[in-house]
């Protein structure tokens, strides 16, 4: 038994692949069987990941969640900044410039406006909760954009790991809420045609939230929303650690 554990620890990254696959498999099973498609499997999996990180933090006593337990140390590599950024860049591959041009200026504007709106809301809430340093405020604001923009911004600005976790949690709350609430509010917000779907994807930005939210509303609208949402994380990663962070710094000097 101890040999097996030692081998799994020696091949930690490979072990991490199995662990994540098992988490996703269990989450997708829960999504279809228990939640009956109401919640996206990936959202459940991320929640499970955060819960495991909480448990790992209690047991391991470190700052890297589950990755502090040597058996799970591969998660630290797989979920580290290098692979995360690599995968984010890869998601841009699905986006076509021509399709975005067809989306028109409203689609492009909704992405930029969506990032700024969510960032401002998140930043204001962070200030309301007593955060005073520009790095933490920007990271939480970025997390209110998506749970990718938050950690990317936090890593770029050198934010505390706890603040990064907060930004991921805020992005997760957003993603789950978008999945659950979209079919409920679709009629009220006029989400019934390709153009409003493009705007919706741009404003919400959370790819899994948008894909699941539109699938639950009208599957025909999925590609339009996903198109603008694909650009959201990129625009967020571009704006949040640069212009928006500088804006926070500037406002901080005023008050």
């Amino acid at each position: 038994m101890s040999t097996v554990v030692a081998l799994l620890e020696a091949n930690s990254l490979v072990t991490a692949f199995v662990v994540v696959a098992l988490i996703l498999a269990a989450s997708n099973w829960l999504a279809t069987r228990i939640f009956r498609g109401q919640v996206h499997g990936s959202a459940i999996a991320i929640t499970v990941g955060l819960l495991l990180a909480y448990w790992g933090g209690l047991v391991g006593g470190g700052s890297k969640g589950l990755a502090d337990i040597s058996f799970f140390s591969g998660l630290g590599v797989l979920g580290g900044a290098m692979f995360r950024d690599f995968a984010i860049v890869a998601t841009a591959f699905g986006a076509e410039l021509d399709a975005l041009k067809r989306a028109g200026w409203v689609g492009a504007m909704s992405v930029v406006l969506g990032v700024i709106l969510s960032f401002v809301v998140g930043a204001v809430v962070a200030v309301g909760f007593g955060f005073t340093d520009a790095v933490s405020i920007s990271t939480i604001g970025a997390g209110a954009a998506t749970y990718i923009v938050g950690p990317v911004t936090g890593t770029a600005l050198g934010a505390d790991s706890g603040v990064v976790a907060l930004s991921v949690a805020a992005g997760l709350v957003k993603a789950i809420l978008v999945m659950v609430a979209t079919p409920l509010v679709a009629k009220r917000i006029g989400l019934d045609n390709p153009q409003s779907a493009l705007i919706y994807g741009g404003l919400m930005g959370t790819t899994s939230g948008v894909a699941a939210g539109l699938a639950a509303t009208d599957p025909k609208l999925v590609p339009y929303g996903a198109m603008t949402a694909t650009f959201y994380t990129g625009v967020g990663c571009l704006l949040a650690p640069s212009l928006l962070y500088l804006a926070v710094l500037y406002l901080q000097q005023l008050f």
């Binding site: 998660l75 706890g162 976790a165």
Partner: peptide, 21 residues
């Protein structure tokens, strides 16, 4: 690698300092 995005995000969630958050 585009398809590995969600799994990597899950691994990333599992290594966050949730206790502090």
């Amino acid at each position: 690698w585009s398809a590995m995005y969600i799994p990597i995000v899950i691994a990333m969630a599992a290594k966050q300092n949730v206790v502090a958050a």
